[in-house]
Simulated assay, not measured.
Amino acid sequence: MPGHGTINYVELPSRDLAATRRFFEQAFGWRFVEYGPEYLAIEGAGLDGGFYASSLAARSEAGSALVVLYSDALEQTLAGVVEAGGEVIKPIFEFPGGRRFHFLAPGGSEFAVWSEPAA
Rank of each mutant, 00 (worst) to 15 (best):
F101M: 06
G44Y: 13
E43R: 15
A73R: 07
D16S: 08
A118N: 07
S109M: 03
L74H: 07
W114R: 08
E83F: 05
A119R: 14
S115G: 14
A118P: 00
E110C: 03
A79H: 10
I89E: 04
G80L: 01
L74V: 02
G97Q: 14
P91W: 01
Y52L: 10
I42F: 08
A58V: 04
M1K: 15
G80W: 00
Q26N: 09
Y39Q: 09
S109P: 13
A53L: 15
G98V: 00
E116H: 11
A18S: 10
S54F: 05
T20D: 05
S71Q: 06
R21C: 07
E94H: 06
V10K: 06
F103L: 07
L17M: 06
L78N: 02
S109C: 07
V82P: 02
L56C: 03
Q76V: 10
Y39N: 00
A65G: 14
F95D: 15
R59Q: 13
L78T: 05
P91F: 04
S115Y: 03
G3M: 14
E38T: 13
V81E: 00
F103Y: 11
F28I: 06
G44K: 14
I7K: 01
A41R: 14
G97K: 11
V113R: 09
L74F: 02
V82K: 14
W30Y: 15
A112L: 05
L69Y: 11
P13S: 14
P106N: 09
F101I: 07
A18L: 06
V82R: 11
R21G: 00
S71F: 04
V68S: 06
P117I: 08
E94Y: 01
L40M: 01
E87K: 15
G98K: 04
A65L: 10
W114T: 06
Y9G: 03
E75H: 11
T20F: 06
P91N: 13
I89K: 11
A73P: 01
E87I: 13
R99E: 00
H4V: 15
L104Q: 04
R22N: 08
A118F: 14
S64C: 08
